[in-house]
Simulated assay, not measured.
Amino acid sequence: MSARPRTALVVRAALVSVLACGALTACGSDEEALRYATDYANHEPLGVVGYPTSDSLRITQQLVWRLADGKAGEVEALAADPDDARGDVERTARNWIRSFHEGAKGKVTAEFYDEG
């Protein structure tokens, strides 16, 4: 293993530890923050072009992670209003996983233009 990938792995592990520790000490019951830190550690970093808002970056990361994991139910849960046209949301989640699952497991770059 070359020095660069090893360094990146160490930096990534340190960042995850800090995020996890911060999530646990700031709010012991904040499962969402802990899950985010765990997801961050378990997936390829998301490349970013442009200037996303923190919220648009977070939802984009979560969508890519759920597609990579192949979990239709979790993709559905990201819908703005999952109760609207329930069948459409389920069908869309399955179609997206079928189309983007393999690609989402590798390096992904999200492009943000104009406003987030």
Rank of each mutant, 00 (worst) to 15 (best):
G28K: 08
T25R: 11
A72P: 04
A93E: 11
T53H: 02
G50K: 14
E31I: 10
G73N: 02
R98C: 03
H101A: 08
G28E: 05
H43D: 08
H43V: 01
V18D: 01
Y51V: 10
T109D: 01
G47E: 11
V48D: 06
T60D: 05
E115A: 12
W96G: 05
L63C: 12
A37T: 07
V49A: 11
C21F: 07
G28N: 06
Y40S: 11
W96H: 15
R58N: 00
Y36D: 03
L57A: 06
R91K: 14
G87A: 15
V89T: 12
L78G: 02
A23V: 11
S99P: 00
V48M: 01
S29M: 00
A20W: 10
T38F: 12
V18G: 07
V49K: 12
P45N: 09
P52N: 07
N95L: 15
P82L: 04
D81N: 11
V48S: 03
R58Q: 06
E90K: 15
T60R: 09
T53V: 00
A33P: 00
L57P: 00
V48F: 11
Y113S: 15
K71H: 07
A37Q: 08
G87H: 12
G87W: 10
K107V: 09
Q61N: 07
S29P: 02
T38P: 00
R91L: 13
E102W: 04
A37N: 12
L24A: 10
E115R: 14
D39T: 04
S99V: 03
A77Q: 01
C27P: 00
D55Y: 09
S56N: 05
E102N: 13
T25G: 01
D81K: 08
A77C: 00
H43Q: 01
A104W: 02
G103L: 13
Y113D: 15
A110Y: 04
